[in-house]
Design a protein around this nucleic acid. Sequence first.
DNA 1: TGGGGTACTTACCACAAGGTGAGTGAGGAA
DNA 2: TTCCTCACTCACCTTGTGGTAAGTACCCCA
Lengths: 126, 126
Amino acid sequence: MAKPRSGPYICGIDAALDVVSGKWKGLILWELDTYDVRRFAELRRGLPGVSEKMLTQHLREMEQDGLVHREVYAEVPPRVEYSLTEHGRSLNAALGPLGRWGMDRIARERTELVEHRDAEILPRPS
Amino acid sequence: MAKPRSGPYICGIDAALDVVSGKWKGLILWELDTYDVRRFAELRRGLPGVSEKMLTQHLREMEQDGLVHREVYAEVPPRVEYSLTEHGRSLNAALGPLGRWGMDRIARERTELVEHRDAEILPRPS
DNA sequence: TGGGGTACTTACCACAAGGTGAGTGAGGAA
DNA sequence: TTCCTCACTCACCTTGTGGTAAGTACCCCA
């Protein structure tokens, strides 16, 4: 048992966040959405810094949650392909507005940083 | 320092999740969206099970992230009112589709549970 | 005089999430 | 012959997140 699903949720946000929270899950979703089908090692290269343990763990949880499909080919060397299920794709669609909000936040943060920097560099216009 | 913001994000989802992840933040957002203005103790009563420490901590972080506005009245007994900022409201709007997806997930889970239960109660229709 | 409400802060503690490094077993490249 | 790749698993350790309980300073009500 990887995670004891926290049972009855208070609202939909709860239920959705439970499924996407996890350091790499957003990126995995993104990667599988843009590439359609990806092998384990491809995903690992696509998420720089992820450990193999976390990648397998997250993929298993997402499989349990019905977001990703795992196809194992009985070959040597082994081949495992991951792709999004219908639910995974609909989750990604539902994450669209949130992603756009996040982009705005990044842009906002950057302009604030720039303003701060300018304020430090030019505190008093002589 | 409450949280070292993880710096440059890879995508918008990252940036947005960084802001809403936290055990009670979704509920706080929801509460402030439905009631518009809430005092500390009202929020605490609205989130059954939250500790005072976590509530203040989450509210401070959300204030730092520009999601909530904190208005302190110099009265005795003290009065502090929390409300959503423009960004907080837009975040809530962006969370709408995700919330609906979560509701679907809850419904889906429930029907699966019912099917399981039926399968156990009526394994063989005599 | 004692209790409750207001909005916190602080210290301490437990558990979960995540990172590290090793091992697996077969095949192909150097 | 040694290393690398594939897709993991396992044991161990560190960090982060959240919970508990107490303290604070002032006021109102019984």
